[in-house]
Structure formats: C-alpha cells, structure tokens
Design a protein around this nucleic acid. Structure first.
Length: 291
DNA sequence: CGGGGCTCCTGTGCGC
DNA sequence: TGCGCACAGGAGCCCC
C-alpha cells in the first residue's frame, strides 16, 4: 500500500523516464481508472494527445505531471496502483487500466496498473499562479510534512480546532496530507500517543514532537528506497519495493514492544486496524494528564 | 458545516 | 476440497 515515501519513489521515476516527453496517444482499458475525470474517458484521451509533460510533482500521496503549463495529469495510486515504464512489446499486465504512448523513439510507454481500482488518473486545470502547478482538486489539501511550505503552527491550530481524536486527524488530508494508516501508527508509537487521544489535549510541544516523528518515520522509509511489504507495490520501473523491518507497531500484534516488551495490541478501528503498545501509549484519563 | 460512518474493489488466507 | 468471511484501506460521499 503505497504511502508518501513510496509515492515519492514513483515521482522520482516519472521525473527520470517521462518528463520532457510528448504524449502520442492514450488508451483507457477500464473506465473506473479515470472516474475522477468527470468529462469521461474519450475526453481524457483526446486532451492527453500532443501534451508535453513537465516536471513530476507530488503532494502527500497525489502525483501529477504538468502538461503544457495550464493543465495537469493527476494520479493517485490508491491501494494497489502502479505506474510502470514498459517496452511496447511487454505483455499487458492483468490489471492494466491505462496506457500512455509517447511521440518519440525511446521504445517505452507509461502504464497505470491497478488491481483494486481505488486509484486513478484524471486531467485538471492548474491553480492560477501556483508555482507548483497545483491541480485544482488539490487546492484544499494540506501540504505534507516533507514540503517546505508545511506550516506546523497552522497544523497545530487546525488540530486544536477539530473536535476529534488524533489518529482521525492524522488521516484527514485537509489538516496534513500524506499520512496513511501505517505511518500514523508508527508516528503515534514513536510519540507515545494513544490513537484515541482527543485533539483538544494536544499541546504545542506534543504537536511538535508528533510532527518530528512523522517526518522521521517517512524519511527513514524514503532512505530505504521506499518501503512496502505489500507485494503489489512496484515502483515506476517495475521493481518491487522492499520492506526493511523498520516498523515498530504496525502489523506487530502480540509481538513485544521494542521499548518496553509489552505485547503490541491490534484494535479494529474505522474498518481497519490500529496497532499500539498498551503500556507506552496510554489513553489519556479524562481530567488527568498522564504526562 | 463538521464529525463520523459507509462504500467502493479484488485477491489472499484462514477456519469450518 | 470448497465455501464464506475477514482483511487490506484512501478518500469521496452521505447523513445527522
């Protein structure tokens, strides 16, 4: 399941293999893959033809390629999406959804492959005057914590304004983008915060520490080349990502906490799971601050 | 309007 | 062996 570090690896691959090329034609093999392109698959392929691809961008888990300066090809990998650079002769993948060919002699094409079809591609106008060539749908998504423009004070203020719990807030892309279930659990474990801690109890120092841990867990994964234990994840060149056993909480039910040895617990939560150490990550007692 | 829950989608793995 | 179900989960959408 690609999260921010994995998506960044894909962005770097796109930058290397696709930026500067001109689209010859595109082919949509599954309409669901372009469902966020509201004008439909035919309009999607029509508008892509002839487009010059600009520098690959990313915010959180969204990727985009600026086209001719005024529009952008936006992509989200969802659960199982892959962007592959393949020779024309490579057999179609079972879950090939979109194929983009280029007007050059390099012999390769860009393929969007997605088993579960939670991801997709779409074309959008660019926010006027945006130096990032930000596609319009991303205008109201918060910067991710690895961006220069990420504003920790604004994040803290937004966190305190929300009446919810900390993990919900971390997964809300309008407050902070790029944090998924895995890195949320990892950053909360590093910060010794329970996933159901009310955001109202977040002090500035706690927010600062949490943001630091989010950055660290993402940077560690990025340094490892983009990590994933999901065999579905393949980077833009088709190489499998690898997972280097650096997770402390996620997926470690009943295994000892690396800080205190207590068994890591798994709790069903929002149709998924939360992993935490019941000793290091105590839920706050109402009316009493455990720190 | 904000919080929270539901749904989409397919393949894998496990228990009966 | 085969069936049914839990699980993986980002984010759009809907309802109160």
């Amino acid at each position: 399941m690609p999260e921010l570090p994995e998506v960044e690896v894909v962005r770097i691959g796109l930058e290397r293999w696709v930026t500067g090329r001109t689209v010859a034609d595109a082919e949509v093999l599954h309409p669901r893959a372009v469902r966020r392109h509201l004008a439909g698959a035919a309009d999607f392929t029509d508008r892509l033809a002839g487009a010059l691809i600009g520098p690959a961008r990313r915010r959180g888990k969204y990727l985009w390629l600026p086209l001719n300066g005024t529009t952008a090809l936006l992509g989200h990998l969802g659960m199982s999406g892959q962007l592959l650079i393949q020779p024309h002769a490579a057999p179609d993948e079972t879950h090939l959804r979109v194929r983009i060919r280029f007007d050059d002699e390099l012999g390769t094409e860009l393929r969007f492959v997605d088993q579960r079809t939670f991801g997709g591609l779409s074309l959008h106008d660019v926010v006027p005057g945006s130096p990032l060539a930000l596609p319009v749908p991303l205008a109201h998504i918060a910067p991710d914590p690895l961006e220069d423009v990420f504003d920790e004070e604004a994040f803290h203020t937004a966190l305190r304004r929300r009446r919810t719990t900390i993990k919900r807030a971390l997964l809300d892309q309008s407050l902070i983008s790029g944090v998924g279930n895995i890195y949320a659990d990892e950053a909360l474990w590093r910060s010794r915060l329970h996933y159901e801690r009310p955001t109202a109890t977040m002090t500035r120092p706690r927010t600062a520490e949490l943001v630091t841990h989010i950055r660290e867990v993402m940077s560690d994964a990025l340094a490892a080349g983009g990590t994933s234990f999901d065999s579905l994840y393949v980077n833009v060149n088709g190489e499998s990502g690898y997972f280097d056993r650096s997770l402390d909480a996620y997926g470690r039910e009943d295994e000892p906490c690396r800080r205190c040895g207590t068994g890591i617990r798994r709790r069903p939560w929002m149709n998924r799971s939360s992993y935490f150490c019941p000793r290091c990550q105590r839920p706050p007692v109402p009316g009493r601050d455990p720190r």
